[in-house]
Simulated assay, not measured.
Amino acid sequence: MTTENSQKPHDRLAAALATDMEAVSALIRERMASEHAPRIPEVTAHLVGAGGKRLRPMLTLGAATMCGYSGPYHIHLAATVEFIHTATLLHDDVVDESAQRRGRPTANLLWDNQSSVLVGDYLFARSFQLMTEPGSMPVMRILSNAAATIAEGEVLQLTAAQNLSTSEDTYLQVVRGKTAALFSAATEVGGVIADAPEQIVKALYEYGDALGVSFQIVDDLLDYEGQAESTGKNIGDDFRERKLTLPLIKAVALADDAERAFWVRTIEKGKQEDGDLDHALALLNKHGALDATRKDALEWAEKAKNALDVLPPHEIKDMLSDLADYVVARIS
């Protein structure tokens, strides 16, 4: 029998928030329904039912609970966060021409690109309806800003992904947009809806931001050294899709002329041949790019934990700290 201490942090968080998470799930099912367009719940249910951890809505519920919130609207905000996340996944899979997510065929493969884009639009619209219901302007500002920042990050990634001059600063800007913005909004609105002091709200924002950055760096690292069974992706997918993520940015910065010519051919021009992935991995290891990326992820996880220092003692605070460790445990 699994003891509480041996459970994964997100499982312990889910257990602590089980009643609220059930309410979130019920609200999601209710609001993703459509009387006139049955494809909407079909497509959404496929993605929602794919076994995601629902980490982002749990962050909202956890932050609100930790700050002593006793009203009903943290449920609406958690559902809002999940709708925004699901909408971005639908759109991302179209942009990336992905065929697999969480080990299952993507919605755009099972239906078509049009369905994925339009259902994603519907979920964005639903998220904006939901975020208005608590009647809080600060909450609406945080979540609507996050939605805009996510879209901006995705567009920036389009222009930066295959440009060898992309710097680590630009990469961080992309990550802060497309991934960390929703993490930080999720935690921040939990504190805001609970009327927590400004210092606490700021700490929750900083925790979510650092956790999101660490989360994405780990994801990018695992693309080069993870296991397909656990990541749901094949090794080197980012290389094949010509995405200039942090490991490649670090290797390109240290490349000699011959190595740079290889990166120009494979990433900028997209002329990839058999054996190129193995050569790319050899260059990443030669320049210590994977180890340097791992170090960055660990540092961001530590920043997330340090941000929690100003919060008073609480069992959920401990779970959030453990969660930061867990995010990087797969690469430690």
Rank of each mutant, 00 (worst) to 15 (best):
A78S: 09
Q227S: 05
G71L: 10
A146S: 14
P105C: 08
V175K: 09
Y205T: 01
K8H: 14
S184F: 04
V328M: 04
F83H: 13
L284C: 00
D318L: 13
G68M: 02
S127N: 12
N234L: 12
S25C: 07
G177N: 04
N163K: 14
N234A: 14
A63N: 01
M58A: 12
R31S: 06
L109V: 14
G232M: 07
I40L: 10
A282E: 13
G288V: 03
A26W: 00
G103I: 14
E168F: 13
S116G: 06
T60V: 02
G49Q: 15
T80R: 07
E273P: 01
D274I: 04
D256T: 05
A307F: 01
R176L: 11
L204K: 14
E229I: 12
L90N: 05
M21F: 13
V328W: 01
D195A: 10
V213P: 11
A194M: 06
Q227A: 07
M140R: 02
A255G: 00
G68R: 01
P197N: 07
A37M: 11
H46L: 12
L27C: 11
L143Y: 06
E82A: 11
I28W: 05
F262M: 11
W263A: 09
T3K: 08
R39Y: 10
E133P: 08
S136M: 02
E198H: 07
K8S: 13
E22Q: 15
N5F: 15
L320N: 10
I193M: 09
T166G: 06
Q114S: 00
F215S: 08
R265S: 08
H314N: 11
D112N: 08
H279G: 00
K305E: 10
P313L: 01
L204S: 14
R31Q: 10
E225K: 14
D219I: 09
E206A: 15
R330D: 03
G190A: 12
K243P: 03
T293I: 05
S230A: 08
S6W: 01
K286Q: 14
I331E: 00
H314S: 02
R54P: 01
M66Q: 09
V175Y: 14
T132C: 08
I200D: 09
G208K: 13
V264F: 07
T19Q: 09
I217C: 10
L277P: 11
L89Y: 15
T170H: 05
G68E: 05
Q100S: 10
V119Y: 03
D257P: 03
A292Q: 06
A329F: 08
R176T: 02
E152F: 14
T187D: 00
W300V: 03
A181S: 15
T187A: 11
I75Q: 04
L277F: 13
W300T: 04
L77M: 10
K233T: 09
L204V: 02
E302H: 06
R242Q: 09
D318G: 11
K250E: 08
A45G: 12
P38N: 12
V43F: 00
K269I: 04
A26C: 07
L158P: 04
E241L: 05
P72D: 13
E259W: 03
